[in-house]
């Protein structure tokens, strides 16, 4: 059960600059902390976040262990055409989540 919250406008004017915000549930375990047993808890982070608009990549970000749990990403894009904006998170332990929203550009 992966939890994602996305905040994107449902409609936009062509050429308009819109803000896209994405929040995901993830522990972002740094790999530097010892657990209760005294052993280091293995690193478990999201390594990469990408966003694409109708399949074409518009934003990419590499994550590091210093980024907090449940990372929140906000960025801007120019509304070009109607369709689907997809958000994809990939990381350690085979983590891969994709979520998309529809947008109507007039």
């Amino acid at each position: 059960m992966t939890q994602v919250l996305i905040n994107a406008p449902k409609t936009a004017k062509k050429g308009e600059v819109i803000e896209l915000k994405a929040l995901i549930l993830h522990v972002m375990e740094t790999g530097f902390r010892p657990g209760t047993s005294g052993r280091i808890i293995p690193r478990n982070i999201i390594e990469r976040f990408t966003a694409s608009w109708n399949g074409a990549e518009i934003f990419r970000m590499d994550f590091s262990p210093a980024i907090s749990a449940n990372p929140f990403v906000s960025f801007f894009a120019v509304a070009s055409e109607s369709g689907k904006i997809s958000f994809r998170w990939t990381g350690d332990e085979g983590f891969a989540v994709e979520e998309s929203v529809a947008i109507d550009v007039a």
């Binding site: 994602v4 905040n7 929140f72």
Partner: peptide, 18 residues
């Protein structure tokens, strides 16, 4: 105040599924 920025809402959503 923003339900898509409040990380607590991730858990509310998880709770809804549970």
């Amino acid at each position: 105040d923003d339900d898509t920025a409040n990380p607590g809402m991730l858990f509310v959503q998880l709770g809804q599924q549970l």
